[in-house]
Amino acid sequence: MFGYLIKRFIQMIFVLWIVSVLVFVMMSFTGDPTYMMVPLDATDEQIEQARRILGLDQSHLVQYWRFLTNLLQGDFGRSFVFRQPALQLIMERLPATLEIVFLAMIMALVVAIPLGVYAGAYPQRAGSRALMAGSLVGISLPGFWLGMVLIFIFAVKLQMFPSSGRGPTEVIWGMRLSFLSWEGFRHLILPAVTLSIGTLAILMRIIRAEMMEVLRQDYIKFARAKGAANRFVLFKHGLKNALIPLITVFGLMLGDLIAFATLTETIFAWPGIGKLLVDSIYRGDRPVIVVYLMFVAFLFVVVNFLVDVAYALIDPRIKVT
């Protein structure tokens, strides 16, 4: 187990290093950030000076080395726009994103598991067919558009929920969170529903497919031959086997949710890291984009690692070496 952890840790470092190279190369494409730093009426001399300060007059290799060593020292640069450390910006906005991401994930799981199990256990029933068609619609619609439709119906027309913004927050462990007050929670609902639909639809289809696969196995028939009731067989012998593969898609699910949070947060003016990224792209705020990417990469790598470990712990067949 220990050797496995070491191996995975080295892999993680390697992936992060590759990401840092890719991010650096990509950022070199975005053009010269000097113009973001200097006044519009700057003289050539001033621009030249700014370039020297930014280190842009040196070779790409030297620039990358500086970029990397700064990263390793925890120095991710300062936002051109906010004039404060970019990492701090991300950290301030992270709780808002995590809040809608986790709520969306919980909603998706709570709805998708029973529906997926039902559709997989009784694939021929009309209800299952309707669920499958519905989930296909869920996969086919643009999530941001659904958010707009929800805003129009529930905020503009029915005025049941606020249309945008975060509402009141309370501070817990240094994080500003919305879900603790009813008013704050009301602000959370529409964004979280919007975000969850795509994941919900995909999850349901995965669970259905897994369930159908599991129910074909011999041990299901053997359990029935033991004289167990169908429902008992379904839940004891079917469900657990069908849900284990879900652990492996957890990382992908989280990734998708964080990615689509950029759109959801933009529509609902939700002050999370997704909206920060989109705003920074508009403003050409390069350090913030870099930190966002490195941070998200770090998050994914860690989550994927945890997923693998969890999988090994839960499935008795898998031995980590």
Binding site: V15, F29, T30, G251, D256, A259, F260, L263, I281
Partner: peptide
């Protein structure tokens, strides 16, 4: 492998911000 561990939308978004 590395690319697959990132959501496509996010990669495309960042690329477009550069392009």
């Amino acid at each position: 492998d590395i690319q697959l561990s990132f959501p496509s939308v996010l990669i495309a978004l960042v690329l477009m911000s550069a392009f």
